[in-house]
Computed example of a mutant assay.
Amino acid sequence: MAKVLFHATTSLDGFITGPRGAMDWVGPFVGTPNPAVDELMPRIGALLIGANTFRGGEATDAHPASRPEGAPYGGAWSGPMFVLTRDPAEPPVDGYTFVAGDLRDAVEVAKAAADGGYVVVLGAKTARGCLEAGLLDEVLLHLAPVLLGDGVRMFDRAAGAPVRLEWMERSTAGDIENLWARVAY
């Protein structure tokens, strides 16, 4: 059965984007071979992308997934990609299927398409929704040695109870710490 995985690079202070969705901070950390990513790539069955992540936020330097330079995984992965949206009349974009409505339904659609592989969630709000609904199985974070001070937090839940994780793997690739954990509901 497909598992749901939140996959992101995060700053040491817990941001996955800079202000207004800026992603330029990731540049210095991309390109170094990373065995954790190499291990994950063939195991991905489908992507579930939040609408904000798909559009690239508000930053002028963001590369939304709807443009070739913003393709997930730099275009190195191809397969079913679903964008969670509230707008059922979303204009079509080649290679992406828009799923409007309930998060649980979107996850089920992505799981069916994943054919037993991982459903990788891209986007903090979508990942948080999956976690709160009990749908998130694992988290793979690439911890970068940088402090951003502002942006979109990896996990932000006002007055929320802690979420217990169980380590699965920890490794280092260049300056990046890879942290792979299972959600312990």
Rank of each mutant, 00 (worst) to 15 (best):
1 M>E: 11
2 A>F: 05
2 A>S: 14
4 V>A: 03
5 L>W: 09
5 L>A: 00
5 L>D: 01
7 H>A: 04
7 H>L: 05
7 H>Q: 05
7 H>V: 01
8 A>Q: 06
8 A>I: 07
10 T>W: 04
11 S>N: 13
13 D>E: 13
15 F>M: 11
22 A>C: 07
25 W>K: 05
25 W>P: 09
25 W>C: 06
29 F>Y: 11
31 G>E: 14
33 P>Q: 07
36 A>Q: 08
38 D>T: 14
38 D>G: 12
39 E>K: 04
42 P>A: 13
43 R>L: 04
45 G>P: 03
46 A>F: 04
46 A>R: 00
48 L>Y: 05
50 G>L: 14
51 A>G: 10
53 T>R: 05
53 T>F: 00
56 G>F: 07
56 G>R: 00
57 G>Y: 15
58 E>C: 06
62 A>I: 01
62 A>Y: 05
62 A>S: 11
64 P>Y: 11
67 R>G: 03
68 P>M: 08
69 E>M: 01
72 P>L: 05
73 Y>S: 03
76 A>D: 00
76 A>G: 00
77 W>Y: 15
77 W>L: 12
79 G>F: 10
79 G>C: 07
83 V>F: 12
84 L>M: 07
85 T>L: 06
88 P>S: 01
89 A>N: 14
91 P>K: 12
92 P>W: 04
94 D>Y: 02
95 G>K: 10
98 F>K: 14
104 R>S: 13
104 R>M: 10
105 D>G: 12
112 A>G: 14
113 A>C: 11
114 A>H: 10
116 G>R: 09
118 Y>V: 09
121 V>M: 00
123 G>T: 02
123 G>Q: 00
130 C>H: 07
130 C>L: 11
131 L>A: 07
132 E>W: 09
133 A>Q: 06
134 G>M: 08
134 G>E: 06
137 D>Q: 02
137 D>M: 04
139 V>Q: 09
139 V>H: 09
143 L>M: 01
144 A>P: 06
145 P>V: 08
145 P>Y: 05
145 P>S: 05
145 P>H: 06
148 L>V: 09
149 G>C: 06
150 D>W: 06
151 G>M: 02
156 D>S: 15
159 A>T: 01
159 A>P: 01
159 A>L: 00
161 A>I: 00
165 L>C: 13
165 L>F: 14
166 E>K: 10
168 M>P: 00
169 E>H: 13
173 A>C: 03
174 G>R: 10
174 G>F: 13
175 D>G: 10
179 L>G: 10
179 L>R: 14
184 A>H: 04
185 Y>H: 02
185 Y>Q: 00
185 Y>E: 00
